[in-house]
Computed example of a mutant assay.
Amino acid sequence: MSDVINSTEVDSTGGGKTLNYILVTVTPAVFVLLITIFLVLFIRTCYKKKWRYKLVPTKDEQDHPRRKSSSKRTVNVTIPDPPPPKIKITTAPNLAEPTSRYTQFTVQLLHKPPVAAECKEITDGEEGVAGKQAYVCLKMNMEQNKLWVEVQKAVGLPHREDGTPADPFVRLSVMSRERRNSRRKVSSTNHIERTSDPTYMQTIDCGSVIKEELANSNLQIQVVDHLQDLLLAEGEVGLDQVEYSKSIRVPLKALTQQPTVGRILISLYHDKTAAKLSITITKLELLSCTLPSNDCWIKIEVTKGTKPLLKKTKSVKVPQREVMLDNTFVCNDVNDASCLTLQCSLVTTVTASLMKRTKLLGKVTLGSHEHGQALRHWTEMVDTPDTQIAEWHNLT
Score class of each variant (00 low, 15 high):
Met1Glu: 08
Ile5Pro: 05
Ser7Gln: 12
Ser12Met: 15
Leu23Phe: 15
Thr27Val: 14
Thr27Pro: 00
Phe31Ile: 10
Phe31Glu: 14
Leu33Thr: 03
Leu34Pro: 05
Thr36Gly: 14
Ile37Met: 15
Phe38Val: 14
Phe38Gly: 13
Phe38Ala: 14
Leu39Glu: 09
Val40Ser: 15
Phe42Tyr: 13
Lys49His: 08
Arg52Gly: 14
Gln62Val: 15
His64Pro: 05
Pro65Met: 09
Lys68Phe: 13
Ser70Glu: 12
Ser71Glu: 05
Lys72Leu: 13
Lys72His: 11
Val77Trp: 04
Pro85Trp: 13
Thr91Lys: 11
Thr91Arg: 13
Pro98Met: 03
Phe105Pro: 03
Phe105Lys: 09
Val107Cys: 13
Val107Arg: 14
Val107Ala: 12
Gln108Thr: 15
Leu110Lys: 03
Ala117Asp: 03
Ala117Gly: 03
Glu118Asn: 02
Lys120Tyr: 07
Glu127Ser: 07
Ala130Asn: 07
Lys132Gln: 11
Gln133Ala: 04
Val136Glu: 07
Lys139Cys: 10
Asn141Pro: 04
Val155Lys: 10
Val155Asn: 09
Gly156Cys: 05
Leu157Pro: 04
Asp162Gln: 05
Gly163Lys: 05
Thr164Ile: 15
Asp167Ala: 05
Pro168Lys: 04
Arg171Gln: 13
Leu172Gly: 01
Met175Asp: 12
Arg179Tyr: 14
Asn181Val: 11
Lys185Tyr: 09
Lys185His: 04
Ser188Ala: 12
Arg194Ser: 15
Ser196Asn: 06
Thr203Asn: 00
Asp205Leu: 12
Ile210His: 14
Asn216Leu: 08
Leu219Met: 09
Gln220Asp: 14
Val224Ala: 01
His226Lys: 10
Gln228Ala: 14
Asp229Ser: 10
Gly238Pro: 00
Gly238Phe: 12
Gly238Asp: 13
Leu239Ala: 00
Gln241Asn: 08
Val242Ser: 01
Glu243Pro: 07
Tyr244His: 03
Ser245Gln: 15
Ser245Pro: 02
Lys246Asp: 07
Ile248Tyr: 06
Val250Glu: 03
Ala254Trp: 04
Thr256Ile: 11
Pro259Arg: 04
Ser267Glu: 12
Asp271Cys: 05
Lys272Tyr: 10
Ala274Ile: 02
Lys276Arg: 13
Lys276Pro: 01
Ser278Trp: 07
Ile281Gln: 03
Thr282Cys: 11
Leu284His: 05
Leu287Ile: 07
Leu291Lys: 03
Pro292Ala: 06
Trp297Arg: 01
Lys299Ile: 00
Ile300Ser: 00
Ile300Thr: 02
Glu301Lys: 00
Lys304Cys: 08
Pro308Cys: 03
Lys311His: 06
Lys311Ala: 07
Lys314Asp: 06
Ser315Asn: 08
Lys317Phe: 15
Pro319Arg: 02
Pro319Thr: 02
Arg321Pro: 00
Asp326Cys: 09
Asp326Leu: 14
Phe329Gln: 10
Phe329Ala: 12
Val330Pro: 08
Leu342Gln: 01
Thr348Tyr: 00
Ala352Gln: 15
Arg357Trp: 11
Lys359Tyr: 12
Val364Tyr: 02
Leu366Met: 05
Ala374Val: 10
Arg376Phe: 11
His377Thr: 04
His377Gly: 04
Trp378Thr: 03
Val382Phe: 10
Ile389Cys: 01
Trp392Arg: 00
His393Gly: 00
His393Gln: 01
Asn394Lys: 13
